[in-house]
Design a protein around this nucleic acid. Structure first.
Lengths: 221, 221
DNA sequence: TGAAGTCTTACGGAATTCCGTAAGTTTTTT
DNA sequence: AAAAAACTTACGGAATTCCGTAAGACTTCA
């Protein structure tokens, strides 16, 4: 378990929750700040003192007040920190769930986990920490599909249905009608084509026959 | 076991073998004739006497001699007999192994078994009799595929190769070239098409995709 | 809200498959 | 050796699939 953790979060009550969670996880040294600038300075200082933080947990949005700040948001803090100290693990803990923002943080800033503040937020935070301990990134369920569309195969239930009917000998037009009858969307011939084309690319199949052959071997249908 | 059996066969030594075999099987009454005409008359007579034969075993080819005959071959005899008395069981016991002739006898004349005279001919004959007793038709191994091409799968090595390449994503034209390179015949696009069409019909597949799906499920490829 | 992105649908042309017909070859049968 | 059957190949048109473009609806983003 991490020994020294920095928490950057301006809301007192939330800070309390995080603190308790970290204590329960066995974190010995927990430092909390309410401004991003403070977080930045503490991280710098700790490194100079040769007692670096192992993990940063930060919110994204901070209420602005009379104090003028260099970093007004968690994004900016993370960008700088991760550039200077790529090895420092970082978790975003925020209500923000816009997928593109999540994507930027994970892919560009190399944040290690993204946890949405929600009813189960602290549980998710625990999972995130445990994931990072074994060098994995973690996304709470609300934003779990932020990365998938780009990289991975996002084989939906729909795709399985589609491939299944295809393997049963229906033509693309018949599948279209089949879906229309059952009010499964999308159902147009054009969409069927498009989806199959996507699947062909994903599975590196030369044609529909090859595609069905591959997914049968994979046990998908 | 059959009680009353008629054997129509013009070679003495073979007659002897059949006789012994039938005796061993427990057939009580065995009548042997050397002309098809005699066989026909005996069958007629027995029915009139209300003591009909239960089984006819006949050769196909008979040496012609001075006696003019109405039926010069077993085929003709069987055709007439089966037309008049469809219930009388009949076994052809012949050296003939041309598949088409076998097919005609079984499918058109409704002969119950076809046994090739060979080294193991009498063993096969025994099997045939036992099969007929449980109302099954029997074909000795030499001609066992006489019926299969029509009904069943006569899946050749070629077909497997073809289906395999198809499942690997090659177009029919690519398969054609693939076969040409490897001197596998037939290799023309037209032949590939024709063969696949035959396979589709055999496996009741709607299209090539369906076909590959089916043969994969069957474990053929 | 306006802009950007995604999803669904439509359309058209090229490529491929599907299917019947038929000619030329080879094998089988008589 | 001639006839019949089966096999291979070719050809042409219809149907289907493949593939790029694009418009309209909806969602997400700033």
């Amino acid at each position: 378990m991490f020994k020294k953790v920095l928490v950057s979060e301006d809301m007192d009550d939330i800070n309390k929750g995080i603190y308790n969670t970290l204590k329960e996880l066995g974190v010995q040294q927990i430092v909390q700040v309410q401004y991003c600038d403070d977080a930045y300075l503490k991280i710098k200082k700790a490194i100079l003192d040769n007692e670096p933080y192992e993990l940063l947990i930060t919110d994204l949005s901070f209420k602005s007040d009379h104090r003028a700040q260099r970093f007004t948001s968690g994004d900016m803090l993370l960008k700088s920190i991760k550039q200077e100290y790529p090895d420092l693990k970082a978790i975003v803990y925020s209500v923000e769930d816009r997928l593109q923002r999540v994507r930027t943080l994970i892919q560009d800033y190399k944040v290690n986990a993204y946890v949405c503040k929600s009813r189960r937020g602290l549980v998710e935070l625990t999972k995130a920490i445990q994931a990072i301990l074994i060098h994995k990134t973690y996304l709470s369920p609300e934003v779990n599909n932020a990365l998938k569309p780009k990289n991975n195969l996002e084989i939906e239930d729909f795709d399985i249905k589609l491939l299944k009917q295809l393997s049963l000998g229906l033509s693309q037009e018949e599948i279209s009608n089949y879906f229309k009858e059952r009010h499964i969307s999308p159902s147009s011939l054009s969409s069927i084509e498009k989806r199959l084309n996507k699947l062909r690319i994903q599975f590196k199949a030369n044609n529909a026959i090859h595609l069905v052959s591959i997914v049968k071997d994979l046990g998908l249908i």
